[in-house]
Design a protein around this nucleic acid. Structure first.
Lengths: 182, 182
DNA sequence: GGCTCCATGTAAAACGTTACATGATTTC
DNA sequence: GAAATCATGTAACGTTTTACATGGAGCC
């Protein structure tokens, strides 16, 4: 029973629907990939470990593809482990490679710095539009809030919207103070 | 010549002042630790690699401690490598263990979830105050902006302020919609 | 014919964390 | 006298990335 974070990403996805290893890998690009990603070569061994620990189980299903697929589901024990983990405080400091660049931006070429910041701002802009599009698709939540899958999905999207907006504005402010026209 | 990010954290610190391995380790908790951290057991081997590549050099100095210390400085080549890296686009998706918890919050105990979110909001509040204190200490920047060390430090702090503010408000909104009184 | 998607795995290499190892000086 | 700080390193372990390996179905 390893203590890696990946296992909780997998349990969290399986708490919502039954999935194959391949489908889990894809979701770890999108939509969960927005805040946690992993490659398939990590997923398959981790699934085997989770099954050995009794947190997930699988049945073999003839899928749409040519080969038999393993459809995984969360066990009651898996659900308990996940539920206990989510209310645990997360480590506070995240690594931010972009900020590391900003910290030493003064050592780089000014014109290249402006180009990099413009690209970054554009990236935030696009991601913001994407989050807002998904939110619009989901529509309004019921007013006495029901804390279910959708509620949590919307919560993460709202955080995304807030984050991208502030990040975009910060890029713009920095560009302005660098004296970059338009 | 490895391609890890740590090397740029070290180069970025050495671009500002000459430091020993131990001092570098401490700065990777604070202030750079706000967005990049590393333990001393990573720093010492990486410094050796950087020196082998001609990006840093050291001289042995009798420090305040009992033992001789190695004071490292950036070489011209190290400065070039750093300057080229900072204007390079950073990978966009960062891992966010906290958001992974939020995504599956619905599987956890509601009261425990509220407690966790309150603690998190408090954390953002404290970090916000810290950044604002440091900004006040630095004071205002010259108006025709000079893109130097201080300018970049202030840029990272402003981003920190903006981030903590939005994160705190998001926590509060979520607590509100969970119907948590105060 | 080549590319992408479906689908599963293993292996090697790189990277990061924690523990081991040592020891003087300063502060409580 | 105990704990923290200064100061440097190595070793073991865990995690992550990239490459290796295979192969059918559908699309351009």
């Amino acid at each position: 029973m390893s203590g890696s974070v990946l296992r909780y990403a997998l349990l969290g996805l399986l708490a919502r629907e039954e999935l194959t290893g391949y489908q889990l890998s894809r979701r770890l690009r999108n939509p969960v990939g927005y805040f946690w990603s992993a490659s398939h070569s990590q997923v398959y061994p981790e699934l085997a470990r989770l099954e050995a620990g009794g947190l997930v189980a699988h049945e073999v299903v003839a899928g749409p593809g040519p080969r038999d697929t393993k459809r995984y589901r969360l066990t009651a024990r898996g659900r308990d482990v996940l539920g206990a983990w989510v209310v645990t405080p997360a480590p506070y400091d995240e690594q931010d490679e972009f900020m590391l660049r900003i910290y030493s931006l003064w050592t780089g070429d000014p014109a290249a710095a402006v180009a990099m910041l413009r690209e970054r701002r554009q990236h935030h802009e696009e991601r913001l539009a994407e989050y807002e599009r998904i939110l619009a698709e989901i529509g309004p939540l019921p007013d006495p809030a029901v804390v279910d899958e959708t509620f949590c999905t919307v919560a993460t999207l709202r955080r995304g919207v807030s984050f991208e907006r502030h990040a975009r504005d910060w890029c713009q402010d920095l560009l302005d103070s660098l004296g970059a026209a338009h």
